[in-house]
Structures are given as C-alpha cells and as structure tokens.
Design a protein around this nucleic acid. Sequence first.
DNA 1: CCTCCACCGGAAAGCCGGGTCA
DNA 2: TGACCCGGCTTTCCGGTGGAGG
Length: 415
Amino acid sequence: MEKPLDKLFDKFLQGQAVFRNRNALRPTFVPDNLPFRDEQMSRIGSILGPALKGAPPSNILCYGKTGTGKTVVARYVLKLLVQKATQSAVRAPLTAYVNCRIVGTNYRVLKRLCDQVDATMPDGSEVPFTGLPTDEIRDILKKELDTDTNILTVVLDEVDSLLKRDVSQGNDILYGLTRMNSELERSRISIIGISNDLKFKEMLDPRVLSTLGEEEVIFPPYNAVELKGILEQRVAMAFSDDAISDEGVINLVGALAAQEHGDARRALDLLRTAGELAERRGDDSVTQEHVREAQKVLERDSVTEAIKTLPMQSKAVLFAVYALAKQGQKDIFTGECFNAYTDVARALSLDTLTQRRVSDLISELDMLGLINTTVISKGRYGRTKKIRLAVGKSQLGSILDSDNRLSKIAKEVLD
DNA sequence: CCTCCACCGGAAAGCCGGGTCA
DNA sequence: TGACCCGGCTTTCCGGTGGAGG
C-alpha cells in the first residue's frame, strides 16, 4: 500500500516545488533594484548624502499609502549609504529601524535604538527591556553615540501610530528624539519618519513638525503597469521556472491590487498566498483560480482579525445584527438593532449601553466594513439607519462562534 | 403644505483608570 | 502619599431632519 504523503514529498524531492525563494515575496525583502521609485530614492539619497562627509542630514518625512514602497526604499537607501561609506573608507553612518506600531512607548523606542547601536549598561550588559528610568536609558544612548562622531539615521516606520495611540505621548517621544541633537556633543541623529496617513501632520505638535518635517517625500500609489513590472521582477526571483506560465496570473494579481489603491504589498501577499495554495494542492503551477482563491483567503483573514480585536460591546452589537440577519431580516433599523443588542448584552451580563452609544458603535462597525449603513427616512415612521451585514452570514457565524462567550449565548439569543 | 415620527449626531459633562509631580 | 491631570469611554441633553400621511 502506498504510504500517505509519499507523492507530496516526492514532489519536493524532485525539485518541482512551486517556489524557488518565497522570501522574495515577503514585505521585509529588499531586492537589488527597486523599479519605479527612482525619484524618491534620489531625493532621499541626496538628503542623506551629507552623512558621508560627517555632516548631519535633514530629517525626512515620507508619506504614501500602504504598499507604495516607503519602507523598502528607506531601507534600500540606507543599505547603499552604508556600503558606499565602507567602500570609501569613511566612517559609516549608524542606522536603526524601529516600527512604531510594534514598539509603542518612549522607553521601548529608546531601548531599540540602544540595541541597534550596541549601547550597553555601564557594566557592559544589555539594556534591560524594562525597569530603568527613561532618563537613564536616554543617557546611555547619548553616551554611546558620543564616544565618537557618529551620525545615526533612525527610520521610524509607521510613526503615525505613535500619535494614534496617544497624541501627547507620541509627540513627547518625537520631540525627545529631535531634541536629543542639542544634547549631544559630537554626534547627530537624523530621522526618517514614515507615515501612511496623510493627516498625520495635523496631529503633530508644531515644534516637532518644524524639525521632523524639514524634508518631505511623497510616495504615490503604483499604477497597474508599474505593479505588473514589480510582480514580474519578483516572480522571477520567487517562483521556479514555469511555475507561472499563465500570463494572465500576473495581470490578475496586478488588477486586483490596483483596485486596492495600487498596494504592492497586497499584490505580493496575493501572489505568495496563491503560490502556497498551489503548493499545498500539489499543483505544478499557479493559476488564476489560485489567485482568486487567495484573494478570498486574505479577505477572510482580515475580517477575522478585525472581529477578533473588537471590544466586547462592539461584538455584542455585531452579534445582534447577525442574529437579526439570520432570522431572515435583510434591512435592520437602529431601533431593532438596539433591542436585540439589549438582549445580547443581558445574556452576556454586560452593561447595557445607551442607544446613543450603540449608534456610535454601529458607525464604527460600518467604518470597519463589517456592516453597511445608510441613513434613510421612513417618512411618517421616522428617520433611521438602515443596517446590513457586509460579511457573509456563515463566515460571520463561524467567527463569532469561536468567541466562547458568544457561542455560549448563541442558542439562547437566536431562539 | 404642515406634522410628526424615530432616530441622527453634536456638545458637554461625568466617570474611571493610569500616570505625574511635589 | 495624596492631590491633580489626562484621555478615553459613556451618558445626558437636545436641536435637527426627510418624507409619508394627513
């Protein structure tokens, strides 16, 4: 009898794998050349250039929607800058990369910087990830930098998330970093801030904006042709020969991503997921079918993620809408929704929020794209919001069911 | 043309947990 | 340590409103 998985493993052995190097499709991958971003690269390059001669570069703010190449360009330019310095035997600038969405507090930003420039405690041990007064860790960083004339270029990726979490604290962090220059004897810090929110500037304290935003570089979305070019480049690196024989695959991926405001990351994700689907099924090549399937997978993942991270009250509201929809109601009005919500909240022994508040939660769910709402007038019978699920009932059902508090009450509320 | 429903959505104030400062 | 402040969440209050029915 044939052993299970035998065929599948054989395929790997015979080198028929779909991927040659799937890392080339990951967002962190920095290819050897970046098409369609020449203008941004030379802008940033010319701003950072003075660092080679030991002069502190201006700070830069990069704007652009997700997947327009901001991060990869910043990393790429820094990499080249360091290479050039090394080749020319000048002191290479120090570089550091911090993703502010992940590293959200002042202390942790400083800690990351310390780690990346090899700053250590006076006794030589690594800076602890908690416990030190923030001032002290600042001093450690400053001291380390000042051991020589260093230029430290810091990439602050997704800076806007610092302000989104906490406007005043975020401003403090940025202010602290920009001000550090005046506290350093010999070294200088320059900052490359990356934001995908164009309104980010409005939230910025004017003092911070004036130093941080000395230079601005805009990253426009990729158009369909450019996306296609990028995809072709990556496909050649990531997939085995013949794994993508159908010309339509790339076009389809490009078209789908172009709908998402030309998001290259999205395009690469799509391609990778499609490849993985093909691989898992033991197919030799990626088809348009795989791409469509991948689109669904990604879509579902993001919806699942959005719902999982919802606060309990919002989940309760969503559950109420779901319950009504399941009873066959297509259009749900705020009043009905609120009543259903009341039942759900009671069953969950949650505080029952007021209708005013629930109406705000409904708007938030709308913004997240989990439901659709329109304000309509029913004339004599008042003015209200028409609510409709924007996600498939079955999918929503299974996600909500995976929340054990909700699944417990599901039977009760759904009659 | 007016009424009046049933809710919208802005403003403001209260509550609460966490952080700061003397 | 306690007084104080801050920001987020929530409630309270309320003026505003599109259009079916009279």
